[in-house]
């Protein structure tokens, strides 16, 4: 893709505890903060939280869907985890074009929950061909 849309957005996606368990197995991250209700109850969050990397993956998926191979062969992602995502939350990823610089499009990237609260913020940069 040689042009950069002003706005990118995914539909909301419900994250279930079952998906968290599946992600733990697939990623190898079995931190009890995500999987053990009793352990998580004693944490600052009070209940299990979703892997940050699982929520972040939605941004990369959005960029792949929008830019295809350009994202896979030159994409850059920088993110801060602002707030926890809990199983049962419905999250969506979005990107707003900030600038085009050095042949790359730079998006302000956000993952937000069902209340509109930003749980991840950052930047996604993708090279533009042509």
């Amino acid at each position: 893709m040689s042009s950069a849309p002003e706005r990118l957005e995914t539909p909301p996606r419900l994250i279930t505890q079952g998906q968290v368990v599946e992600y733990a197995d697939a990623s190898g991250d079995h931190n009890p903060l995500h999987l053990d209700e009793e352990f998580a109850r004693g944490s600052p969050y009070g209940r299990p939280i979703v892997h940050g990397m699982l929520a972040l993956a939605m941004l990369s998926e959005m960029m792949t869907a929008s830019f295809g191979i350009a994202w896979l062969s030159g994409g850059r992602l920088k993110a801060r985890f602002r707030a926890p995502v809990f199983p049962g939350d419905a999250i969506r990823a979005s990107g707003t074009l900030k600038r085009i610089e050095g042949g790359a499009a730079v998006y302000e990237a956000v993952v937000a929950n069902q209340d509109g609260a930003s749980v991840i913020t950052g930047e996604a940069e993708v090279p533009l061909s042509g």
Partner: peptide, 16 residues
């Protein structure tokens, strides 16, 4: 240890 959390991530994907 259990209880560790990620606060930030940066990735660059130069090639698939």
């Amino acid at each position: 240890p259990a209880g560790a959390v990620h606060t930030g991530q940066e990735f660059a994907f130069p090639r698939p």
